[in-house]
Design a protein around this nucleic acid. Structure first.
Length: 502
RNA sequence: GGCCCCGUCGUCUAGUGGCCUAGGACUCUGGCUUCUCAAGCCAGCUACGCGGGUUCGAAUCCCGUCGGGGCUACCA
C-alpha cells in the first residue's frame, strides 16, 4: 500500500483496439549498436503485419539517449533494413506526414507535452539526487518493500524547494502514478494486469531537460497515430507507463494502440542474445554469404509458423500468411544449422543469373577474380555444377578458386593423397590418355578416363578419380571432376596432372 | 527478494478435449545413389517439466509446484 496515496479511485484501463482505423505499425529501434537478429525479427514481424493488413509500416529511430546512439549505428540500421527488403512507408530518408522520425529532432514536441503534464499535475518536479535515491532503494530492499520511487517529491515544502534551488539541483520530471492498476489486452498473451504498487512514479525528463524513452515512445505513438505496437517482450512491463502517458495526454482508451509483445530470440546457450553468445549482427550474416530472404524466412519461423507443415516461404508469402494470432508466446532459440539449411534451399532456388550477381562480390572480395567479363563468363558456366553443393555464397570461393589460380599449388595436406605409387600410376595413365583426346568435353573426358583407369587398371572410381581430382583442383573436395576439367581447359588440366607427377 | 511473462523431440514448431500409440523441419545415426563433397530418396533415435484435479476422455481446461526468462535506471 502506498503511504502517499493521492487518489483512492480504482484506476483500471482496458486498452482495446476496436476501431477500424487503417493499421499503422512502427519499428522503433534504439541504435546503440548493430541491429541484431532479435531486432530484425521484430522488424520483420512489424513489416509483415503492416503488409498483411495493407497498413503503413513506420520506421522510427529512438535516439533519446544520445550518449549511446551514434549516427553510424543509425545509418547501419537503415542499411540493414534496406538490405533485407523491409521497406518502410514513413521514416528516415522517405519522410512522411508525421515526421520527423528521429526522436532527437522532436525535442520541442516532448517539451510541450512535458509542460502540460507538469501544469496539469500529472507530473511533478523531483529533486532527489541519484545518491539519495540509491540509498533509499537499499533501505527498501532491506525492509523487503517493493523497490521504486517513494513519492518523496510529490509534495515539497517551500523551504526544501528553496534549499534545493540554492544547492543548484536540477529537477527531473516525474510522472505521478495513481493508486490502482492497469489492465490491457496483449494480442499474444491475453489480459495482463499490473498493480500500481509495482509501477513507481517514473522519470519523463532528465535533469538536463532531455526526454526519456518513457515520454518519447508514448508521445510519438500517439502523434504518429500508431495503431499496433509489436515489440519485444522486454517492454511488456513498461506498458502501464505508456498507458499512463496516453491517459495524461487525454487520449481516449479506444484510441490506445493494441499491444503485442513478441517472445525473445535466445542465443545458442539459452541466454539472451549477446556478442558473446553467437554472432548477432545482421551484417555478419551478410558478409558470410547468407541471403536476405533466407534470414527473413528463418527468422519468421522463430516465434511464428504458417502451420500446415510449411516452412519455406517467400517474402511475398510471408506477408500473405502472417497473422499475430499465430505468433507464439514462448521464446525461441537461434539455430545456425537451420539457418544454413534454409540458406542452401534458397540458393538452389536462385536462377543462375541471380546467383551470379550475388556471388561475384564474394569472389572479388576474396581475390579470386577481378570482375572482368571473361571471368564472369567462366563463373557463370561453373555455377550450375556448384549450386546444389553450397550453403552460403561465401562457399563459392573455395569451390571455384581452382579455376582462376595464377600459381596453382596443391594444399600441403592433400599432397600425401597423391604421393603413393598407385596414385602416381593413375596420374601417369591419365596424362597419357588425355593427351590423345581430341574432344575436350566432360563426357569425352569421363569416357576415356573410365576406360583407362577403371576398366584397364581395374581401380575403384573413388580411388582413381580421387587422385586426378587432387591434381586438378588441389583438394579432395571439389565440384564434379569431369566438368571441372572441361572448365579448366585442356592445357591447364594437362599441366596440372603433369605437375602432380613426381 | 518483488512484479510480470513463458514451459511439446537436442533445436524450431504442428496441435485450441476424442482425428495423437503426438505430425513436420533442422540436427544426429544408418542405408540407397554415387567420381569427392553436396543434393536427393528411404529408415531410425528422441518430446507433451512434475504433481494434483475437472471430464467418459486432456498435450489441450483449472490449481499447485519446479524450472527458464524479463523488468525492478535521470537505458531502451
Amino acid at each position: 500500500m502506498k503511504v502517499w496515496a493521492r487518489s483512492l479511485i480504482r484506476y483500471r484501463l482496458v486498452a482495446t483496439n476496436t476501431s477500424d482505423k487503417p493499421v499503422r505499425v512502427r519499428f522503433a529501434p534504439s541504435p546503440t549498436g548493430d541491429l541484431h537478429v532479435g531486432n530484425i525479427r521484430t522488424a520483420l514481424f512489424d513489416w509483415a503485419y503492416a503488409r498483411h493488413t495493407g497498413g503503413q509500416f513506420i520506421f522510427r529511430i529512438e535516439d533519446t539517449d544520445r550518449e549511446r546512439v551514434t549516427d553510424e549505428y543509425i545509418q547501419a540500421a537503415i542499411d540493414t533494413l534496406k538490405w533485407l527488403g523491409l521497406s518502410w512507408d514513413e521514416g528516415p530518408e522517405v519522410g512522411g506526414p508525421y515526421g520527423p522520425y528521429l526522436q532527437s529532432q522532436r525535442l520541442d514536441i516532448y517539451a510541450e507535452w512535458a509542460g502540460k503534464f507538469l501544469a496539469n499535475g500529472d507530473a511533478y518536479h523531483c529533486y532527489c539526487s541519484s545518491e539519495e535515491l540509491e540509498a533509499r532503494r537499499e533501505e527498501q530492499k532491506k525492509a523487503n518493500v517493493a523497490p521504486g520511487y517513494d513519492g518523496k517529491c510529490r509534495t515539497i515544502s517551500e523551504s526544501d524547494l528553496a534549499r534545493y534551488k540554492s544547492e543548484g539541483r536540477k529537477p527531473v520530471l516525474r510522472m505521478r502514478m495513481p493508486d490502482g492498476s492497469t489492465t490491457f489486452t496483449d494480442s499474444i498473451r491475453g489480459e495482463v494486469t499490473f498493480d500500481h504498487n509495482f509501477v513507481p512514479d517514473f522519470v519523463l525528463v532528465r535533469g538536463d531537460g532531455s526526454p526519456l524513452y518513457t515520454l518519447a515512445v508514448a508521445v510519438d505513438d500517439v502523434m504518429m497515430k500508431v495503431t499496433h505496437v509489436l515489440r519485444g517482450e522486454d517492454l511488456l512491463s513498461s506498458t502501464p507507463r505508456q498507458i499512463r502517458v496516453y491517459q495524461a495526454m487525454g487520449v481516449a482508451p479506444s484510441d490506445y494502440p493494441t499491444f503485442a509483445h513478441l517472445p525473445f530470440v535466445m542465443g545458442q546457450d539459452n541466454a539472451k542474445l549477446s556478442k558473446r553468445n553467437g554472432e548477432v549482427s545482421i551484417a555478419w550474416y551478410r558478409d558470410r554469404g547468407f541471403l536476405p530472404e533466407a534470414i527473413c524466412n528463418y527468422l519468421a519461423l522463430l516465434g511464428w509458423s504458417p502451420g500446415e507443415d510449411r516452412e519455406n516461404v517467400t517474402m511475398q508469402e510471408l506477408t500473405e500468411l502472417f497473422t499475430v494470432e499465430r505468433v507464439h508466446s514462448s521464446p525461441a532459440r537461434f539455430d545456425m544449422k537451420k539457418l544454413e539449411a534454409i540458406n542452401g534451399d534458397k540458393i538452389r532456388l536462385l536462377t543462375i543469373d541471380d546467383l551470379l550477381s550475388r556471388s561475384v562480390p564474394f569472389l572479388i572480395k576474396d581475390g579470386v577474380i577481378s570482375g572482368t567479363p571473361e571471368e564472369l563468363t567462366i563463373v557463370k558456366t561453373a555455377l550450375p555444377i556448384i549450386q546444389e553443393r553450397i550453403a552460403t555464397l561465401a562457399e563459392v570461393t573455395p569451390m571455384l578458386k581452382f579455376l582462376f589460380a595464377k600459381n596453382f599449388v596443391i594444399d600441403s595436406e592433400e599432397l600425401p593423397k597423391i604421393a603413393d605409387a598407385q596414385s602416381q600410376a593413375v596420374l601417369a595413365k591419365a596424362s597419357e590418355v588425355l593427351q590423345g583426346l581430341s574432344d575436350w568435353s566432360h563426357s569425352s573426358i569421363e569416357e576415356i578416363l573410365r576406360a583407362a583407369l577403371i576398366e584397364e587398371m581395374a581401380l575403384k572410381p573413388r580411388i582413381a578419380f580421387g587422385a586426378v581430382r587432387v591434381a586438378i583442383t588441389g583438394s579432395h573436395i571439389s565440384p564434379p571432376l569431369f566438368e571441372s576439367m572441361e572448365l579448366l581447359g585442356r592445357d591447364r588440366a594437362l599441366a596440372r596432372i603433369a605437375a602432380a607427377i613426381n
